[in-house]
């Protein structure tokens, strides 16, 4: 059986909120290392990969592998019933028909309990190759969100060009063109504002802004976002969570003939 207790319901609320517009039905794969999710969007352009390590829960118990097939719209409805600061416990039997969610207020004696019916989801797992990326950029997640939203007003696509000069996000559309360039920057007082660029070779790739703006819904999960790029492979956008847990998005590039 599964029993996983989260100190704050907020974490799961934010994770589900960040991915629910990209993927609808998905398996939450539970085993003794934690709860994982991997799903492609309908158009097979983006891939979501979430890992909530067992250390992110206390306690965490999962005796055998259980796949919880959950509709994210249903999960969102139930998670709305939890206050952000509620303690959240997920429970399921070994061959479950439902997943049980318990919300407890730390300040009062309220205890709410919900069951969500599970679905059989036949989802193929993709192997994500270990990649030594040519460029890795860490930057404030709010800054990345603003850049994507700003450029989307002008164009459907953004080119991300990383050289030793910095990283340039550029677009052009019917009304004109625009670009934002960032250079490495260290703020000792506020390290969450740092921009760090780690480059082994120059990279230039083009991506759909619609998806990037969608990924940025995860900005509330982490002050910093990490972008990993290599020529002609999907972009990795990573939001690191505590205890080595993470929410990752992969986006296939647009490539010319």
């Amino acid at each position: 059986m599964l029993e996983a207790r989260l100190e704050q319901a907020n974490l799961l609320k934010k994770v589900v909120d960040a991915i629910k517009d990209l993927v609808q039905d998905c398996n939450f794969d539970c085993n003794d290392s934690g709860i994982a999710l991997q799903a492609m969007d309908n158009s097979h352009v983006a891939l979501v990969s979430m890992m909530l390590k067992s250390e992110s829960f206390s306690p965490f118990r999962c005796d055998r592998n259980i796949a919880l097939g959950i509709n994210l719209t249903s999960l969102t409805k139930v998670l709305r019933c939890a206050a952000n600061e509620d303690i959240l416990t997920l429970k399921a039997e070994d061959a479950p028909d439902v997943v049980n969610l318990v919300f407890e207020s730390a300040e009062s004696d309220r205890l709410s309990e919900y069951d969500i019916k599970l679905m059989d989801i036949d989802q193929e797992h993709l192997g994500i190759p270990e990649t030594e990326y040519a460029a890795t950029i860490s930057m404030p997640s709010a800054e990345f969100q603003k850049i994507c939203r700003d450029l989307m007003a002008l164009s459907e696509s953004v080119s991300i060009e990383c050289t030793k000069e910095g990283v340039k996000f550029a677009c052009s559309g019917d009304i004109g063109s625009g670009s934002v360039t960032l250079r490495s920057h260290t703020n000792v007082e506020k390290p969450q504002l740092n921009v760090e660029i780690d480059l082994s070779e120059p990279v230039a790739l083009t991506f759909s802004l619609k998806y990037l703006v969608n990924f940025c819904k995860a900005s509330g999960l982490s002050e910093q976002v990490r972008l990993c790029l290599s020529n002609e492979v999907p972009l990795l956008v990573e939001y690191a969570l505590s205890n080595n847990s993470y929410l990752r998005f992969y986006l296939a590039p647009k490539i010319g003939d």
């Binding site: 352009v45 193929e124 993709l126 083009t206 296939a252 010319g256």
Partner: peptide, 14 residues
């Protein structure tokens, strides 16, 4: 004209 690629062109089923 750049063409949107699919994730499955890069990552294959396990």
């Amino acid at each position: 004209q750049k063409k949107q690629q699919s994730i499955s062109n890069f990552f294959t089923p396990r």
